[in-house]
Design a protein around this nucleic acid. Structure first.
Lengths: 359, 359
DNA sequence: TTATTTTACGCAAACGATTTCGTATGTCTA
DNA sequence: TAGACATACGAAATCGTTTGCGTAAAATAA
């Protein structure tokens, strides 16, 4: 499982040579100048003669000088890095969001440190601490499905750490938030199923702690109320443990499908729920869409090649990441107090496919 | 799309208060000691009296003192962070690898900075520069499908930057590498198709620049040679641009399927290729497995619910990430020169499902 | 009692960069 | 020619922490 090979072309003791860049001191010494003069030359100060500037700049370029970001951080009291706390990165919605975040961060010269909570409350707390201890300039967070207490976030925020919440947002005010239009998306999805002739539509939602859940369930209920006034609450299932284990979702399906009156369609409120419902149906030979119609929130790019292809509500992950990062960096770099906090609401996209059209 | 709300509960000028932690100086001043004494107390030096130590430690704990990692970095000349360069994170294999990397990194007190090359050679170069400029202590890299020249990596490596390569590894010696057993996996996959009665087996491989491609293709060819000595080279297609665009893979399929003698099975060598071949078949009404058998390298956890369920070769992503991170950190923390470089080879897992069993 | 050692701490340098302040020249003006 | 002012640079502080060295006071030894 592991083979060793003696080194060949490589300089055998190269690890004695730690990776080190040239510093401003080295330039100063080499050119017989002071560090102040070198620093000022590189920042093109008017106090330095053209001749000296040129000498310094040339020498710096030739020797590939790069300012040491750590020294700058120490002086400026900022690390030019932002932290992200999410439940996990191996998740299509979140990895797309992170893509959006990174695109803005890199644009503005920030690097990004990701911490995963793995849908665990304690790990979320330690992730926040980890990031704070790493001196990030700000934090983007989508809370875990186990988070109903937001003190760990509020405390850090009140101490002056810029924080922006997206997707699974915090519950307190006075903070920027970036969310999907959860209510409308769930409402539209439910109406879509109704229009396709389904009569008993269930909903499997994420953790009941989360505002995205509340909003989506409200959209679902309102749609049903409008068209089917006799809603049974028992048709709503909550996945309170994040659904990292498939069993949690299978159990919910067992309960739903073992009622006297089974649902004939389901609205699923997360990627993981959606795919595990399909898995459940496949394993239990429940035909989609004729036995069970299905529409779900999903950002997977594979839903079109499932059989039947899956009708989905796609969340604007990339855009949300960009917006959240923009707000955070604006906050970090703002000199004045921030007195207005935005809640950005970005619409979802409903993609109609085979899983809710009976044949 | 964006509504504003005036802040309510939140202290309106809190942003004047930058997030700042207590320093060793603050402790020293508060207790009437010198910073040296405080520092030594906190590190439990024998030179400090028990009484003083206790006073310092208590005060530090009460005021939630955390050493400033930036100051430590400046002093120690190490940032306790490692960089990762991958083509993209929204990729099941890579996000699982990153999970493995992070698990080790966090264990050892390192944070992780991710840079995406997006399968672009120039972006890979700038990613390396970005990470170096961020003063990471080492770099893990899986090169892009456009990388045939490794100078940018070799140069940094020769200057003393610890680097470990995994998955799509670099081509030079004297460096740690972590790879899957590509040859065996492709060989076994091909033999599996042969055993299932397929007669004309094609292969769609990743970029021809990559060693994973070379190895997989060799496994494929050797299996065929053993069982079907009359191999046609035209049955191997290369996806040289990373396959980020589906068209590249569709074009390859067009060519393969428009031959006089179409293949009756395909071995696909990446996640993206595998799923896009399925997409192509679905769109072109090519029945799997009866018209076309399919086995592919994939780390998606959805392949079991495709119809037909997909036979896959699963790569040990998480394990590879862990191993690579372990090697890198060992390298970073080693005091002595490293003279032996490992190439770790970790086996893949073949999961037999419906897509290669004709009915 | 004096000399020596131990104890317990402080001073200051160092890491790399920026920046405030000070100053030795040179140039111009009156 | 003396005073004023610009020009072009250097010294030193600063950010937070560690650490080598120095040392006063206390404890021990002679």
């Amino acid at each position: 499982m592991s083979m060793k090979n003696m080194l060949t072309s490589h300089d055998s003791n190269f690890k004695y040579m730690r990776f080190e860049s040239i510093t401003i001191k080295d330039i100063a010494k080499a050119l017989g100048l002071s560090t102040s003069t070198v620093s000022r030359s590189l920042s093109d100060s008017y106090e330095i003669s053209l001749e000296t500037k040129q000498k310094v700049i040339n020498y710096a370029k030739e020797n590939n000088y790069r300012p040491n970001p750590i020294a700058l951080s120490l002086k400026d009291k900022r690390s030019r890095s932002i932290g992200i706390v999410v439940s996990e990165i191996a998740n299509s919605f979140l990895s797309q969001s992170i893509n959006g975040i990174e695109s803005i961060a890199n644009e503005k010269g920030y690097s990004v440190i990701i911490a995963q909570s793995k849908e665990d409350f304690e790990r979320e707390i330690s992730s926040m601490e980890f990031l704070a201890s790493k001196s990030v300039d700000g934090i983007l967070i989508s809370v875990s499905s186990r988070t109903s207490n937001f003190d760990h976030i509020k405390k850090l925020y009140d101490r002056g750490m810029p924080i922006v919440s997206f997707d699974c947002v915090v519950d307190f005010e006075g903070i920027h938030k970036v969310i999907q239009d959860n209510y409308k998306a769930a409402y539209d999805g439910t109406v879509h199923l109704i229009n396709k002739g389904f009569k008993k539509i269930a909903c499997i939602a994420s953790s009941s702690f989360l505002s995205i859940t509340t909003e989506r369930v409200k959209g679902y209920i309102d749609a049903l109320k409008k068209y089917e006034p006799l809603l049974k609450i028992s048709d709503i299932a909550y996945i309170d443990h994040g659904g990292l284990k498939a069993e949690e979702i299978f159990d919910a399906m067992d309960k739903l499908m073992n009622q006297k009156e089974k649902p004939d369609a389901i609205l699923t409120c997360s990627d993981r729920i959606t795919t595990n419902v399909m898995r459940y149906c496949k394993q239990n030979k429940i035909g989609i869409p004729n036995q069970l119609g299905l529409i779900g929130f999903s950002n997977l790019d594979l839903t079109d090649i499932l059989t039947p292809s899956l009708s989905i509500i796609r969340q604007p992950a990339y855009e949300m990441g960009r917006k959240a990062a923009e707000l955070l960096i604006k906050m970090i770099e703002s000199k004045r107090a921030i007195t207005e906090f935005e809640t950005m609401v970005i619409p979802c996209l409903l993609l109609e496919r085979e899983s809710c059209t009976k044949y």
